[in-house]
């Protein structure tokens, strides 16, 4: 399912990376109740608000989370982000692998990566 989130967002450099983002377990409820998104994000990251990571680094998951918060998140942002990462209880998979095996926020995004966010916080 395509949508219009940030399709033309580019930075001055113009370089972008295309990614597929999927939501599950109720996380989609925070993103307009759409499970599958194709996005195009800047290839070069901005600095994190706290300055913990600098600008001009290749885009990583930390930047993606920040970018999603600014460009995609529809409601109740505290249910998705906490500080500069996802809220505890949200699982992240990078190309179907637990992000804890891939360096979590430091993982450097590659074109066509598929990133899945699953909430464990919704009813069982």
């Amino acid at each position: 399912m395509a949508n219009d989130f940030g399709l033309n967002v580019t930075m001055a450099s113009g370089e972008t990376i295309n990614l597929k983002i999927q939501f599950g377990g109720g996380a989609e409820l925070l993103f307009g109740n759409i499970r599958s998104h194709e996005v195009s994000i800047p290839a070069i990251a901005a600095a994190t608000p706290s300055g913990s990571k600098q600008a001009d680094r290749p885009s990583d998951i930390t930047f993606l989370i920040q970018w999603m918060k600014d460009n995609m998140l529809k409601e109740r942002e505290g249910l998705f982000v906490e500080g500069e990462t996802v809220r505890p209880g949200i699982l992240v998979l990078i190309n179907d692998t637990d992000w804890e095996l891939e360096g979590e926020g430091d993982y450097i995004l590659q074109p066509k990566d598929e990133i899945v966010f699953i909430s464990t916080l919704h009813g069982g």
């Binding site: 599950g24 377990g25 699982l91 998979l93 637990d98 899945v116 699953i118 464990t120 069982g124």
Partner: peptide, 8 residues
Amino acid sequence: KEIVMYAY
């Protein structure tokens, strides 16, 4: 976490 991963 494992329950959700298992289901996934």
